[in-house]
Design a protein around this nucleic acid. Sequence first.
DNA 1: ATATTATATGCAATTAAGTTGCAAATAGTC
DNA 2: GACTATTTGCAACTTAATTGCATATAATAT
Lengths: 146, 146
Amino acid sequence: MFASMETRVRKEILKKHGLRVTDCRLDVLDLFINKSQALSQKDLEENLAAYDRVTLYRTLHSFIDSGVLHKIPNDSGIASYGICFDTCSPTKHHHDHLHFKCNTCGQLECIEESVSLPNIRLPQDYKLGAVDVIVNGVCGTCSIEA
Amino acid sequence: MFASMETRVRKEILKKHGLRVTDCRLDVLDLFINKSQALSQKDLEENLAAYDRVTLYRTLHSFIDSGVLHKIPNDSGIASYGICFDTCSPTKHHHDHLHFKCNTCGQLECIEESVSLPNIRLPQDYKLGAVDVIVNGVCGTCSIEA
DNA sequence: ATATTATATGCAATTAAGTTGCAAATAGTC
DNA sequence: GACTATTTGCAACTTAATTGCATATAATAT
């Protein structure tokens, strides 16, 4: 076990997406990997107070543009961001996985496994594009504690 | 055909949800019914400039609290609101319908028909709650025009 | 119809999020 | 180590979300 993912691995991720390796990007990436859940800009600000909020803001955006992260809609109005799985490339996001929001602890997770996604039927002449599924419920941890 | 839904009907809707009948609420309700699509706070401000933004803000919230409208997540960060179908009550929202976002005209619609919703499988111990599905694509109008 | 009471509204002000410009600092390359 | 393009931090600005309070209005009782 590692306290945090090896720097070398995180550097590779950045380079693979055409991004320069900077302290801020390594730290943000590390946070996403270790928390293994979706994070908001505010979460970043709280966990990485050493960096300016504008820097974190731009880091998030460069990660989204390059396909490292994807934006997750949220009815609270505050966007969250999650790490893209290998199926995502800089040009095309494939995040047909679920986004699971725990109503107890508030944590937002990307769930890759259960991709039995909807068999969606739209009205005539409608063309189907990307599908986002947000599931509310209780996560494993909260479910067991309760 | 009516230019706008009869006042009597809209009054009934408000009363049924335990809300006082006011001009602002009648006008907001009318707008939602006539536009038959999801609207944002900004849309309200533009269409009902006679009312203060705070009043519209509070009208939206009282409608959500009482089950007249539901909030629709949106990755743009700007929330939209849609009329609840009959399945919604003040205490429990059942908006298991789709939310369709047209990538061409930007319009957001609630689509009631195709409720062939996901057969969602979650990891062990996870408890399933409400499901939100946001479909991106091209709506009928834009599809035909193109 | 009028008075009473609780609620809704408008205005002013505040909080918080998102965004941009620019000079200084730093990463990648020679 | 020097050079160039990118990144960072700071300041400032824009926009959305939210609250307090005095006034106006809806629902209810008289």
